[in-house]
Design a binder for these strands. Sequence first.
DNA 1: TGATACAACTGGTCAGACCAGTTATGGGAA
DNA 2: TTCCCATAACTGGTCTGACCAGTTGTATCA
Lengths: 225, 225
Amino acid sequence: MTRTETAPERAARAIRNLIKSNGLGPGDSLPAQRELAATLGISRASLREALATLEAMGLIRVQAGKGAYVADPHDGMPRDDNQKRQAAQVYQFRLAIEPYVAGLAAQARTRDHLIALQRSIDDMQTAFEADDLITAANADTEFHEILLSASGNPLFAAAIFPTAQTIHENQMLPFANAAAIKAPLREHEQILRYVRDRNPSGARDAMHFHVLSAATRANIAFLRP
Amino acid sequence: MTRTETAPERAARAIRNLIKSNGLGPGDSLPAQRELAATLGISRASLREALATLEAMGLIRVQAGKGAYVADPHDGMPRDDNQKRQAAQVYQFRLAIEPYVAGLAAQARTRDHLIALQRSIDDMQTAFEADDLITAANADTEFHEILLSASGNPLFAAAIFPTAQTIHENQMLPFANAAAIKAPLREHEQILRYVRDRNPSGARDAMHFHVLSAATRANIAFLRP
DNA sequence: TGATACAACTGGTCAGACCAGTTATGGGAA
DNA sequence: TTCCCATAACTGGTCTGACCAGTTGTATCA
């Protein structure tokens, strides 16, 4: 039997669509609860349950007396007005996870992973040639996601998930510096080589270098153990 | 002004504590909503909002007509029936994160962190002497959580959160072997020593050893990069 | 003994009320 | 005219009490 979708579930999905289709960005406000409930044809109680789940997911932020707003992805983490510092935390985080994951991937990868990794590199190359930095950044992210999945341990992907958006944004930073634009491409190729050759320590070091280089390109410094 | 905590927020935290302190595991059922609301001194509406956030966080699962249950953390991630394999993934994950975090903590810790770490060690000791393995396991988890916070990078805590329950479960496994019961205690003390002395590489190695030892005690083997 | 019907649960949803903050507005005082 | 402040009209936060729809245990009847 296909379990019936609950009213708050339906509402939560509707609100997410509303945010998307209306192109609402961080800080933009949602309709008032009484109005939104009426629009969706549900009670305010159900609406509030939907809002509670969306808030738990970090998509919105609700303030008493004021309203509900589309959340800034950075708001889920402790106050830190300093942009640079946030970026530093992201790179610090990546430096912990990604070299390790690359080492695992070098051992656990299948032929399909290699193909997918190569394609993401090709996509990135093509995007660069077309000056399409958005697509290039997407390809960049994709490369890392494939490695994540190639590691064979779903916990890493689960761990990255909450910070995925922050990480992606950060991955675009380096591209602001047009001069060093091809460097990440070569670094990806180097990583892929080690992963293909099943050389964990090589992959690990190459990824370590890649993350540190990306930080340097973005002019970010941070504490390392 | 310190923004007042909302009733559902308070309730969510209370329920999480309830799960912890009662040692509820996956599949165990929570009290009925009417009863739980009365216990917490809030309305069912507020209680339901709390449950909605907990469900969004993947901590519980609510079924109409039946009840609310502590969720299996592995639901929502790729099927993997093999218990041993799940445990291996957890240790593999911890081995990536925790030594790195320990290294950071050794540099960023404050005096308060040291005090808290020492207390968690003392609690664990006391619990062992009282043969209270549940409390001991809680103290064990607490030690690691304090280090997480001492690292100064909230991303690590955020990353660990989704798998926190799995990790906690795993941390209890070693205690099944009564012989080696004091080992983790000594390992924690060793880590604390390095953290106190601001020795990152020492802390890192000690934590590496600690995680590997825990895995060995639990008779778990896994791939390392 | 076994099947069934009922009672007593469970969560899902709603309407409507009231409180406590926030904000816009309009009327006075300077 | 300009500025300030009281107030009205919002906003979300919370509660009560009701009813519906599933699930489950139990007692009754064949």
